[in-house]
Amino acid sequence: MTDKPALLEISDLKKHYPVRSGILRRKVGTVHAVDGVSFAVGVGETLGLVGESGCGKSTVARSILRLVEPTGGSIRLNGLDITHLGKADLRPHRRAMQIVFQDPFASLNPRMTAGDIVGEPLIVHGLATGNAKRVRVAELFEQVGLRPDQMQNYPHQFSGGQRQRICIARALSLGPSLIVCDEPVSALDVSIQAQVINLLIDLQRKHQFSYLFIAHDLAVVAHISHRVAVMYLGRIVEIAEKRELFANPRHPYTQALLASVPVANPKTRRLAPLIDGDVPSPINPPPGCAFHTRCRYAMERCRVETPGLADVGAQHQVACWLNEGTGRALA
């Protein structure tokens, strides 16, 4: 848990998708995209969410924002449960939650100018129109490193990094307290990634909002995050303060993720050998610990009992039977 006042609290969040087949579209299975995720994000904090493709990170993000309806669990924003609010009741709270999508071109309307894209939320929520809207949009453009005279340009007239800056300006337009960044730099060149990440950090320092930052690149996560949560097959398997997680990974999957990061020096000691095999199907997840099919430390207990997150240190939780007490997973 975070030591800062909680802005967002997620408890046992689940999202299951039915699998249908045949002419009658009968249900033949269930995809367990998110299967019992719990965490909190403090005020002004960045929580990094990492894991392999298909582990459920983006589904968690979309469920929190109610872009997809969760199957179970609860979502609390500023202490208020918004899990089951209707559209009308949820609308005022949407101003506090915004998202920056992965693809900065697909998430922008090609028929609208950049200024209209950024200003549209102001109109939708009745915050500004006419000249007041133009002034506000110009301010937002300057905040994200764009020129006000670019407000009349269309998305195809911008580079990838500039498009993502437009997406960030749109997210900022309503003054949110939480911004969900769903792999916001994975589609950008490395040099541009650094600029966008530094922009996000500067904006957070200025406005004190919180980030849920989803990414594959552990170096990016280490740079921007205060705490890091590791997901595997729809569940969080480890969550800790950033420095603690990178210096003292306790779950075998976290160790494997860190060991897979390329290093310039071939003599550098790896944390653990890379794991083998593929991620099991979320339609038919294995019993017990979902990672036991790829874990070299798996015991019989791992195959039949599902471990929950347990404290192994200050603000450090791990879901692994090998970490009971003070034991370490890595020999």
Rank of each mutant, 00 (worst) to 15 (best):
residue 10 I to F: 08
residue 13 L to Q: 11
residue 14 K to W: 11
residue 20 R to Y: 13
residue 25 R to V: 08
residue 30 T to W: 12
residue 31 V to S: 01
residue 33 A to N: 08
residue 41 V to I: 15
residue 43 V to T: 13
residue 51 G to S: 06
residue 52 E to T: 07
residue 53 S to E: 02
residue 53 S to T: 15
residue 57 K to E: 07
residue 59 T to G: 01
residue 62 R to N: 14
residue 63 S to Q: 09
residue 68 V to T: 13
residue 71 T to H: 00
residue 72 G to F: 09
residue 78 N to R: 15
residue 95 R to Y: 02
residue 103 D to T: 02
residue 109 N to H: 08
residue 113 T to P: 08
residue 120 E to T: 12
residue 126 G to E: 09
residue 127 L to Y: 07
residue 129 T to V: 12
residue 135 V to W: 00
residue 140 L to H: 07
residue 144 V to P: 09
residue 146 L to S: 00
residue 150 Q to D: 12
residue 156 H to A: 07
residue 172 L to H: 13
residue 179 I to R: 00
residue 180 V to E: 07
residue 181 C to T: 02
residue 187 A to M: 11
residue 187 A to Q: 11
residue 192 I to G: 02
residue 202 D to R: 12
residue 204 Q to M: 11
residue 207 H to D: 05
residue 210 S to K: 05
residue 212 L to G: 03
residue 232 Y to F: 12
residue 243 R to H: 14
residue 246 F to H: 04
residue 249 P to I: 09
residue 263 V to R: 14
residue 271 L to A: 01
residue 278 D to P: 00
residue 284 N to Q: 10
residue 286 P to H: 10
residue 308 G to S: 13
residue 308 G to A: 10
residue 309 L to Y: 14
residue 310 A to T: 15
residue 311 D to N: 03
residue 312 V to L: 01
residue 325 G to P: 13
